[in-house]
Structures are given as C-alpha cells and as structure tokens.
Simulated assay, not measured.
Amino acid sequence: MTSEDATLAPCVPEDGDPVQGDHLVWLGFASDLTETVMAQAGIEPGQVYRSWYAGFGAVLSGEQVAAVRRIPGVNLVERDTEGRPAPHARTSGDRVEGSYIVSVAEGADPAAVATRLGVAPTGVFHALSSFAAEMTDAQLDRVRRDPEVTDIGDDAWIYVDD
C-alpha cells in the first residue's frame, strides 16, 4: 500500500479499478462538503440523483470515483444498486432511540408516504420533504426499501448553550 492509498476513502465493493455507474458518496455528519466535492471531482448537478445531509448519490465515471476518493472529508464511496435500501445515516450524538427522520423523493407527499407505509408520523415537514416517526426495526426496514424514500437519519437531541 502506498501513502496515497492510505489517504483514499474506502470504495465498496473493493474489486479493482473504479467503475462507471451509480455511487453513493458518504461525507461527514451534517457536512457542507457536497459542493466542494462536486467541483473538485468535476461532477455536474445533472449527475446527482439523490442527496441527504451526509452525502449524495450520483452517476459517476471511473475517473470521478477515483477523484472523489482522494478528497479529504469523503468517508466512503459505494456502488448504489437497484433495490438497495435508502441510506441510513447514524448519528454519534444523543440519538432518540427508535425515532427517525425520513426524507422522501422530490414531489412526493411525506404524509402520504408515511400513511402508505403504515407509519404514524410524529411530525411532517413538507418544506423539507420529510417526516419524523417512531418505528420498530421491522418498520424501519420496510421504510428503507420503499422507492419513494431517499434517506433516513437518526433523530437526535440538539442542545443550545446559553
């Protein structure tokens, strides 16, 4: 392994040269690196098909995958596959056990998606195309596999100092 290899973000699956296709790019929690990564790797907005607060999904060339992996702040690059569950970004903070924030596709009604999935939302955020809900592990798995769900994040307590 070279010193350059040691600074590369992992790529899953790790099976040789980067390939063209759909990839999920994972950044740090609540990262604001998306625009920087896109600019440095030459990714056009039209290539992005999914975004969430900890990364984005885009159709990338092999060269772009290699470039993204070299950018500091990129934690992981993985191939996205049809039928793959929506990304679930875990928080390292003070999470609310069993409570999640679910983002839905642009144009989808978050309340209608929750109802269709049999989930009772504790909050609906139309401006953010998302809803909050308490879910069992089985419900979480079903929600992640719905094609209108783009990503899920752990709900967490946020504290403000005086």
Rank of each mutant, 00 (worst) to 15 (best):
T7N: 15
P72E: 11
A67W: 02
L27H: 05
P13G: 11
A114G: 03
Y49Q: 03
R50P: 03
A58L: 02
G123Y: 10
A133I: 09
E35I: 00
D155K: 00
A39G: 06
G16N: 09
G46N: 08
G123I: 01
D141G: 11
F131N: 01
V149T: 03
G21H: 04
R142N: 10
V25R: 00
M38G: 00
G28P: 04
V102F: 06
A89Q: 12
Y53H: 11
Q139I: 09
L27Y: 06
E78C: 03
W157S: 11
R142S: 13
M1F: 13
R144K: 09
D155G: 04
R95Q: 05
Y53A: 05
H126S: 13
E106K: 13
P18Q: 08
A127W: 07
D94Y: 06
A108C: 14
F29T: 10
E97Y: 05
P72R: 06
V96E: 01
P147G: 07
P87N: 05
G107I: 12
A112W: 02
A111C: 08
W26H: 12
G73C: 05
V149H: 04
R79I: 04
D141K: 11
R70I: 04
P110C: 09
E134S: 09
H126V: 15
F125M: 10
A138Y: 04
D94L: 07
L27F: 04
T122M: 04
V77R: 00
F131E: 02
A30L: 10
G46S: 12
Q40P: 01
R79H: 05
R90A: 06
S61T: 14
E134M: 04
E4A: 15
G118S: 07
S61V: 05
T81M: 09
A138L: 11
V65T: 12
G123K: 13
I71N: 00
D161V: 12
V102M: 06
T81N: 11
G93E: 12
W26M: 13
N75Q: 15
R79V: 05
D137V: 09
V77M: 08
M135Q: 14
T115A: 15
V37K: 00
G21A: 07
V19L: 15
D154K: 00
D17V: 15
T81I: 09
Q139F: 12
D162I: 04
F29G: 04
T122A: 07
A120M: 13
Q40G: 02
A9F: 01
G42L: 10
G98I: 00
A30R: 11
I152H: 02
Q139L: 11
